[in-house]
Simulated assay, not measured.
Amino acid sequence: MTGARLAARGRSPAPAVLGGVLAVLVTAGLCLGTPPVAPQHLPAVFADPASLEYVVLWELRLPRVLVGLLGGAAVGVAGLLLQESLRNPLAVPELTGVSAGAALAVVACVVWTLPVPVALYPVAGLAGAVAGGAVTLAVAGTAHSAQGVLLVGAAVSTGIQALMLAVLATADRLQYDLLFRYLVGSLNGLMWEQAGRALPWFAVAAPLVLACVPALNLLRLGDEAAAALGGRVRAARLGVLAVAALLVGSVAGPCGPVAWVGFVAPLLARRIRPYGGARTWLPWTAALGAAVTVAADLVARLAFAPVETPLGAWTALSGVLIGAAILRHRSPS
């Protein structure tokens, strides 16, 4: 890399721009809605616990924005881990069996009226996510290549989704309406109780993500080259997949599947930092995943107010449009 290119990277305004975008999105998430709150009044509202605005901001909007930020970052990073470990830019968290496992667990609880309190449905979703990821990892252990692991994940996800549809077919109309938003992905109604169950998983996953960087650098060499250097390719890939499953499961439990963020956030990160590696792309992917998710949630809340639309519909739409635009105009490497 030339000195001029390095100097240009050092002068890049991209970090400041992205930081500003995140600040604007967080402020909008707290201020917009019913009742609206002016940004300059936020300190006064948080200092007055007796006011209606305080209850709305503290109990409803703040945990929603926080989980949107961390959840979007988690799904985005999970996508990067999958794409780098499988050396395929089209690998997405939806192909790990995790999102489908979470959805199946919640659908079974609702349709079969299992003795699980509604407040614990996010925990049931997280358990299903872990189970789905474990099945994928167990079967993926028999694959001998990155492409094989991706096909295994797609097959497991398809099988779990088939089971979920079979269970959902026995639901009555009320149960189906209850499940619709969760299956598409939504932050609606998320409060500190639900956020408190998800936040510890994010804290556990963060150091594990950093521990994956050496494995990603090894896998980036290709299976044959990595094995020739003495690397344990299969163990490294399965370890990265396990961390990706944990990240997706921590989000899918309380929020349901948040589609396409794991595809578009790494794609944008590579576009902004085309000469980087996994260590460079990780913080960019996390920030971009957070920005895409919070922005989509704002649209979900406000586009057809007072009716709220599902978050997953807007993340999927934005992912398709952004991904198509970038792939179409991507310069040849």
Rank of each mutant, 00 (worst) to 15 (best):
L104Y: 08
G319A: 10
G276H: 02
Q175C: 07
Q40L: 14
V233M: 09
G153S: 10
A143C: 11
G148V: 02
R279I: 00
P200T: 08
A154D: 04
S145E: 05
P117T: 08
V240N: 03
V307I: 13
L126S: 05
G312W: 08
V123W: 02
F180A: 15
A140W: 00
L321A: 12
Y54W: 12
A290V: 04
W112V: 04
A195C: 09
V204L: 02
A7I: 06
L32W: 14
G125T: 10
A269D: 08
C31G: 05
R181E: 14
A162Y: 06
A303I: 15
P306L: 03
A305C: 02
V75H: 05
G19M: 04
G231F: 01
F46T: 02
E84S: 15
W112A: 13
L298G: 12
A203I: 13
G231D: 04
G231E: 02
G196Q: 03
V56Q: 01
L208K: 04
P274H: 09
V209E: 10
A8E: 07
G239S: 06
V123F: 10
W201Q: 05
G3P: 11
A228R: 14
L199G: 02
T280S: 14
G125S: 11
R197G: 14
L22A: 12
E53P: 04
V77K: 01
Y54Q: 08
A7F: 07
I160M: 05
I326G: 09
V55E: 13
G159I: 00
H144K: 13
V24E: 10
A244P: 07
G196F: 10
A242Q: 13
L114T: 07
A143F: 07
A143W: 03
W281G: 02
V106L: 00
A291I: 09
Y54V: 07
H329A: 14
